[in-house]
Each structure stands twice: as structure tokens, then as C-alpha cells.
Write a protein that binds this DNA or RNA. Structure first.
Lengths: 177, 177
DNA sequence: GCCACCTATGCAACTAGTTGCATTGCAACA
DNA sequence: TGTTGCAATGCAACTAGTTGCATAGGTGGC
């Protein structure tokens, strides 16, 4: 799963403790993904075992001690490897984009283009279902109306995702120059 | 969680077996939510224990026997009770809309209005962050660009959800007349 | 006669994520 | 002096969902 990789991205930007990571998640990556401190502490523990991160205990005055984590060479390689993989979920894709600088940015762009194509396919499927099952939306009532509105939600979501993919590809290509 | 309630909605529309439910989920509710047959069988088992559904074993020729489930009075009450509750997630909200006819439709409309207000708030927060952190988007490059694009994804998602809420409220009000 | 596929149900073990609780230390407030 | 609140870490038990496997009957193809 991608929480580990989201943490790697965050730690590559800036080393930090579990507590700090939890707070950072409330911003940036947290725009679309909330991770509890429990998850983060557990993931960090696992990642230390895997050798993806190293940990220094730091004594503080006026505060409890903390453990500061930073990404090891192994971790950096693992992150780059993962970024080049196809994205399984939307979260995945977003984390890969966010971490594009720590891997193969061209691959990330290609993956977003692939997702765009998937959105186009899904959208045309939804639109076909809409034409077939709800040819006259204005006349719908009760349960049929509710069903149609659920489908409208799917269409709007796919549309938004598709437009985001297009905007992102455009921006990445402009940046390339 | 709402899988149980999604199943109740599906079974109120038409009684069926676990297998049939799994296939139905591929359509309609499955536009936005995939449930494996495992989850469905387990939920059905639990719901029988809770007395929310009744089960008849039906022998078939040419096919293995099947168990046909239908919603009990208790289950129907429980569904209506749940529909009137505030929605915790987007899936929740969609299931409640889909099942509005089996509960208090006015309450569902009110809940969608509440969600619309939440989207408006979230959107204005995101827009404020965008103005503050990315005042000149055209000049962004590298990591800052990636960060901005992630935020753009959040904005587009909220925007799509908001518009869907508005479309839905309009449609429900028109249907009311 | 074997193989692949569909209907139909289910167990067991796993991963992901949530909730509740506990601890330690310091600071600010009344 | 007691209470509240923040920084900091973590365990234990739970819910939700996934994956792999097993079983069993029937259909259709080669």
C-alpha cells in the first residue's frame, strides 16, 4: 500500500518524527488523505525493519524526547522503484505525482496519461448507460430519479478526474521545456 | 458501516441470493463501490443473526441450490433509521440517496444540503491555501508544481462534489412538486 | 473423457485503517 | 495546587476489505 511511500516522500522533503509527520499529513498530502498517528508510527516501525529509514533519538529540553527519521539509500531506491510502477488507486497516483522528483518523472507523466485514458473509457461507458437507461432525465421521479442521480455522481467524478489529468499533463509538459 | 445498508437497499428493490447481489453490485451501486462476494456473504450472515433479513433455501434444477434473502420488518426499520442519520462518507451519502424512498426523503435532501455546505467551506479553504502558497501558478516548477497540482486535484474533486449536490437538490425539489 | 467456464457458497489468513486507552513531561492558567 | 492542554510515543482490540483456496453441480467444446 502507499502510506509507506507517502511517508517516504514526506521524509525526503524533510526528516522528521512520527508526530511531525502526522501533523504534516494534515496539510499537503492530507488534502486528500488522512493518516492517524497510529498508522504512521506503525509504518515507521515497519520501515525501520525493512531498512528504508534510519532513526535518531533526539533529546529535547522542555519536550519529551523524539525519534527523527530519515530516508536511507535503500529507501530512496525503493521509492524510485515504486514511483515507476503503475498506480492502483487515485491516492497512489497522487502520491506518485507528489514524489515525481524522487523518481522517473517521465514515467509518472505516462502513468497519468494512462489514467486519463481509463477515465475517458469509463466516462463513455457511463454516458452509454445514461442514454440507454435514462433517455429522458427530466421525466424521472422517485427511485428511478435517485438511481439516475447516483449515476450523475459517477459521471461528474470521472469528468473531474479526467480534467485534472489533462491539466496535470499540460503543466508537466510546459515544465519540461 | 454502510455495506449492510447498501445490501438492504438492493434487497428491498428485489430479493436475491448472495451471488446475485454481488453481480448487481457490479452495476448501479457498483458505479462507485465494488464489493467482493466474500464481503457480501459475510454481511448477509451477520444480517441474518441481527434479524434484518430472512433467508429461504431454494433448490434449483441445473444449478446449485441458492439462498434467497429478503428484508424483514426489523431490517426495513433499521434501514429507515439509518437513512435519517447524517452521512459519514461520500459512499454513505450515495447509499442514502439511492435508498431515499425507503426512509425519510426530506431528511436525505437536508443531509445533501449539509454536505453541499461542507464542500463550500472546504473549497474556500483550498482556494485560500492556493492564493497564499501559489500566488503565481504559471511560474511553478518541479516539486512546487507537483504540490500545486495535488492541490488542484483536491479543488476539482470538491468542485465536482459540490455541483453534484446542487444538481441533486434541484432535481429532488423538482420531483417534490 | 477431460478441460474450461459459470453458478453458488464459504473458510482462513492476510492487510489497512480506526478507536480507545496509557504514559511521560512541561507550560499556562486560575 | 490542581486542571487543562500540547508534544510525543505506543499497545491492544476492533472493523473493513482483500486474496487465496476449496467445494460442488452443470454446460459446452474438443
Amino acid at each position: 500500500m502507499s502510506l509507506e511511500y507517502a511517508i517516504l516522500v514526506s521524509l525526503r522533503e524533510r526528516a522528521g518524527s512520527g508526530y511531525e509527520l502526522a501533523r504534516r499529513f494534515d496539510k499537503s498530502i492530507g488534502y486528500f488523505w488522512a493518516a492517524s498517528h497510529q498508522q504512521i508510527y506503525r509504518s515507521l516501525k515497519r520501515m525501520v525493519e525493512l531498512g528504508w529509514v534510519d532513526c535518531d533519538e533526539v533529546a529535547q529540553q522542555k519536550r519529551p524526547d523524539k525519534k527523527v527519521y530519515r530516508v536511507s539509500d535503500t529507501g530512496a531506491e525503493e521509492l524510485a522503484r515504486w514511483i515507476a510502477e503503475p498506480a492502483a488507486t487515485r491516492n497512489d497516483l497522487t502520491v506518485k505525482l507528489r514524489g515525481a522528483s524522487y523518481g522517473d518523472a517521465a514515467q509518472v507523466r505516462a502513468e497519468i496519461a494512462r489514467q486519463r485514458d481509463l477515465r475517458i473509457q469509463q466516462l463513455s461507458l457511463y454516458r452509454e448507460i445514461e442514454r440507454r437507461d435514462f433517455p429522458d432525465p427530466a421525466k424521472l421521479s422517485g427511485q428511478a430519479l435517485h438511481q439516475h442521480l447516483v449515476l450523475r455522481g459517477g459521471i461528474r467524478t470521472e469528468q473531474a478526474l479526467l480534467e485534472w489529468c489533462e491539466e496535470t499533463i499540460r503543466a508537466l509538459d510546459d515544465d519540461q521545456e
